[in-house]
Write a protein that binds this DNA or RNA. Structure first.
Lengths: 236, 236
DNA sequence: CTCCTATTATGTCTGAGTTATTATTAAAGG
DNA sequence: CCTTTAATAATAACTCAGACATAATAGGAG
């Protein structure tokens, strides 16, 4: 159940993490060149092997590029795989650009209503059962409780499963996780200004009825209200 | 201009590519274990270093997982970063699952209309100029011509730029590229059954007017008609 | 059933040699 | 004399080989 099974961090993974955070945090900017492998690895106190494997990981995510003679340098930002789960996580370890956070909320606002609409068409009985169970847990435990929030996540995950679109699901889970990083801190400081349960129930009812347009609208409203509850700066 | 500057394939990259294609092609299934590093690298005729770096690349994309003693194995499919540009490319080197292709078309059908709607709100004068220039080229050259298709791509890219959402742009370019690979072969076999230019013009006009709802609708129709022109199997 | 030990594959290190790309230089042409 | 092109040298990533360390699993002892 707990998919966050932390496998002991190897050196190459740890270094990839550290450099990745530096790049996404703006410490290393596009075009910056790393020192030679011997130099850089010695500076970190690790072997060239481990250092090279770390660089290979970053290159696989589009963050850096290595060429003989030219050296290893940070690639232009547009080539970064910013939706890669690791890259998203590294982004939020620093102070992410508020504009980028808005971008993510917008993206979620596009994806999840669409997923709800597909779910209304393709949901199967067991999906409805899981959603109903999640709603019950949310009501019983409340969102102040950790298990209650887990039920909330389960509700959204089940909608994605019911939408029966693998690509949509992969994307939404990444973006959803990233969005939750941003809410985690702010939400806990003060009590929730409103009860989100009725919004969820309306989404469920639309999906249960099999009304794609209503499911789309209800989910859009749920997200809109959730965003309004936060103190996010407006775009422009 | 030509961003497809093919840097000579190093060994680790070539091996990562080959194994990646095997995984996405179903030759290696989730749970399958690779032979030990010494064994596997010797079988490929390469050093352990190069083999390990290839595995690191695949692990960075979520395709494999290595643990001491347990060995390296293909991860369950739901952990794959299927929207990673490389993973998408590797997928389409084999015979991609028709259902997955439908998933991608659906995803594009969700993303691009949303991008068009945002573009209608946020487009700046130079975006309109670029879109108009692209439309002119499309009309002048036609979609039979390679440059004409390039103009088509430019039109869609400009819309993404005008939408001013980095995450949306990154996603759409990946998905768009993947979708274009599926059409490439089929389209060239027979003449286009209809002229797609009027559809594009309508999208442009909606964005130029600044009408998000119209832009959304026109783009959705454009994509819908483009899909209808292909011989895709219906879902279920 | 629990704890400990042995096994084993990945992980890490060192140092050498190779290759590809860039920068420099020289030569040819205008 | 200046510009362009081709050969050359320098450099950094790339590849290789072999050894040792570490950690997770399997099996046996208590």
């Amino acid at each position: 159940m707990d998919d966050a099974r932390s496998i002991s961090p190897r050196i190459h993974g740890a270094i990839a993490h550290d450099i990745g955070v530096e790049i996404l945090g703006g410490v290393r900017k596009p075009g910056d060149v790393f020192g030679g492998e011997i130099e850089a690895s010695e500076a970190l106190g690790i072997s060239r092997t481990a250092y090279r494997e770390a660089i290979r990981i970053l290159a696989a995510k589009g963050l850096v590029e290595s060429r003989p003679k030219a050296g290893t340098r940070v690639t232009p930002r547009q080539r970064w795989n910013i939706l890669d789960p690791d890259v998203l996580a590294w982004t939020f370890e620093g102070e992410p650009d508020p504009v980028f956070i808005l971008d993510l909320f917008e993206l979620r606002g596009v994806i999840e209503p669409a997923a709800a609409a597909f779910a209304a068409r393709r949901r199967e009985p067991h999906h409805l059962e899981e959603m109903k169970a999640a709603l019950d847990d949310m009501e019983r435990l409340g969102l102040a409780d950790a298990e209650g929030r887990a039920a909330d996540q389960r509700f959204h995950r089940t909608i994605l499963a019911a939408a029966q679109n693998e690509a949509l699901a992969a994307l939404a889970s990444s973006v959803g996780a990233a969005v939750s990083w941003t809410t985690k801190y702010k939400q806990r400081s003060r009590a929730l200004p409103r009860d989100p349960l009725p919004d969820h129930v309306r989404v469920y009812e639309a999906i249960e009825t099999g009304d794609p347009a209503a499911a789309h609208a209800m989910m859009a409203e749920l997200l809109h209200l959730a965003v309004a509850d936060m103190e996010l700066p407006k775009r422009e």
